[in-house]
Design a protein around this nucleic acid. Structure first.
Length: 288
DNA sequence: GTCCAGGCCAGAC
DNA sequence: GTCTGGCCTGGA
């Protein structure tokens, strides 16, 4: 157990922008938004642009500060501080994980990653789509889903129009034919089953959020298309259960190469965070 | 052309 | 309970 010491944030308003003093090793926005946990952010010439919480967010980061463009301190305090998990003491967690050599190396390369506190419905639908799939296509399918069913957002200076991720009620009653053209392949049935079970009240994400992790896992697995990997992803990225440990092809390689006797139990409480460091480092092609 | 990408399901043993 | 083939699709 780690004594979580809430990090102090040095926040400054500058015109329409909000500047937060932050070393990239403490929180790296590019890595955080491009490590496979979310699918709605993209690099642009100015920085990073994406959609979360039904709003368009434009970000950039230098070595010593992150910049939330067109953002008020209230927006930040009400939404983004929590979304980017900026009040968790990652340095203490990394100190613990660094006692392990492969993790120490992974953290040196990817230690700026934070776990985002995403909407659970969005995460569930997104990771249903993610199975046996590649990231560009996942992003394309999700974008089309948003354009087809989500609320249109004021796009300010952006060329493309932007759409929020559809809510459960916006997707309720959707038919298989409505999903044609989203490049979902056989995954369309999974989404239909998921939306139907949630809309009928057979399952409730609010209830799942309050369950012990074992029980939450079982409930999620009742949805067609949710197997072990997808369930762990939804728990970790949609419910902020940082003890969840998704095992994908990359992590399988990590476990085989560096943890033949299993992942250390000492890290169980933060296994999901460790997983992200290892996953990102493997994708970078590093030797740990 | 083949392979595979952040898997899961159904059926066979 | 464990293992295997099939599944949509697009890019390397």
């Amino acid at each position: 157990m780690i004594n979580n010491c809430k990090p102090q944030l040095d926040i400054r308003e500058c015109g329409n922008d909000l500047l937060i003093a932050m070393d990239k090793s403490r929180c790296n926005l590019a890595d955080t938004l491009d490590c496979g946990q979310c699918f709605r952010f993209a690099k642009t010439e100015q920085g990073i642009t994406g959609i979360a919480k039904g709003r368009i967010l434009r970000l950039s980061q230098t070595d010593e500060k992150m910049i939330f463009h067109n953002t008020t301190k209230k927006d930040f305090d009400d939404s983004w501080k929590d979304y980017f998990d900026l009040e968790t003491d990652y340095e203490a967690i990394k100190d613990l994980l660094c006692s392990d050599s492969p993790l120490q190396n992974a953290i040196a390369a990817a230690g700026g990653i934070h776990i985002l506190k995403q909407d659970s419905f969005e995460a569930l639908i997104s990771f249903l789509i993610s199975q046996n799939n590649n990231i560009p296509r996942i992003k394309g399918s999700i974008d089309k889903l948003c354009r087809g069913f989500g609320k249109k957002l004021d796009s300010l200076d952006l060329v493309d129009s932007c759409y929020a991720f559809p809510t459960l009620s916006e997707l309720a009653g959707v038919k298989k034919a409505d999903l044609a053209g989203l490049s979902l392949g056989y995954r369309d049935d999974y989404i239909l089953d998921c939306v139907q079970k949630l809309h009928d009240g057979e399952l409730s994400l609010e209830k799942i959020a309050k369950l012990p992790i074992e029980k939450a896992r079982e409930e999620l697995r009742l949805i067609k298309g949710v197997g072990p990997k997808v369930a762990e992803c939804v728990l970790l990225f949609g419910f902020y259960r940082v003890e969840a440990f998704p095992i994908d092809t990359w992590i399988k390689k990590v476990l085989a190469a560096y943890y033949p006797n299993g992942f250390p139990k000492a890290f169980a409480e933060y296994a999901g965070i460790a997983q992200q460091y290892l996953f990102h480092a493997m994708r970078l092609g590093l030797r740990l």
